[in-house]
Design a protein around this nucleic acid. Structure first.
Length: 226
DNA sequence: TTGGCGATTGGCT
DNA sequence: GCCAATCGCCAAT
């Protein structure tokens, strides 16, 4: 089935595409973002990250998804994990912008944030949903489901699909060396919607959730996806 | 030392 | 729509 369809593609798009298809390790599709490209301000960063790529290079290949939903947890935000001050658990939120803050929640799930602001400031951006781009078969394995739309729709699912856990807390997402990193956008971003955040009690009125309108991989109730 | 609770999810009604 | 699962953190004892 797969071989047959590949052969058909070859006959239509020619030799160059055939080389592309048969190359075992295709050239990286994603350019690593430099830290200087990341807005310092938490809310600006949350908006900026929509459409960008989250990549995890694993021994057997690459997991990658397009960021389609984020939430900002700015300085002094009562809903933020840094609100009660610096601690061992929330240390990564205080790192220079572009570091991963990974936290275990509800005894079940891992959540991933990108740290923001200047070093020493506890703030970050929660990655709430991804549109799968690469390594879909491995994401399915990590998630225990083959429902594409559900692979990384929701922050707990993002971490599970991407194989992100406590080992990645504090990782520099802008380093040239790390396996987990942020990549440039693979296509232009659509209209960005802004709503209140999901699943919080304090500062619940603040509109700090950002998402690509019309994207099927965005989480939350329908009224927060239009 | 302990108890309440949380940036969620999946299964069941 | 409702609720249990499940565990680390932290405020209060």
């Amino acid at each position: 089935m797969v071989e047959q369809s590949v052969r058909i593609v070859h006959s239509f798009v020619g030799f160059e595409a055939m080389i592309q298809a048969e190359r075992p390790n295709p050239a990286p599709r994603f350019r690593r973002l430099r830290r200087a490209e990341l807005p310092i301000d938490t809310i600006e960063l949350a908006r900026y990250l929509i459409g960008k790529t989250l990549v995890h290079d694993v021994p057997r290949g690459r997991l990658a998804g397009r960021i389609v939903e984020t939430e900002a947890y700015p300085t002094g935000d009562p809903a933020g994990h840094a609100f009660t001050g610096h601690s061992r658990a929330n240390h990564s939120l205080f790192l220079q912008r572009g570091h991963a803050y990974v936290r275990f929640t509800y005894g079940v799930h891992w959540l991933m944030n990108v740290s923001s602001e200047i070093p020493g400031t506890g703030a970050g951006v929660l990655i709430r949903a991804l549109e799968p781009l690469d390594g879909v078969a491995w994401m399915e394995e990590n998630r225990g489901t083959d429902v594409l739309r559900d692979l990384a729709r929701g922050p707990g699912r993002v971490a599970a699909a991407m194989g992100i856990d406590e080992r990645f807390d504090g990782v520099d997402l802008c380093s040239r060396k790390t396996a987990l990193w942020l990549g440039a956008a693979v296509r232009p971003v659509g209209v960005i919607g802004v709503t209140t955040r999901i699943g919080i009690a304090r500062a619940a009125h603040r509109k700090l959730r950002f998402y690509e309108k019309g994207n099927a991989f965005v989480s939350g109730p329908a009224r927060l996806r239009t």
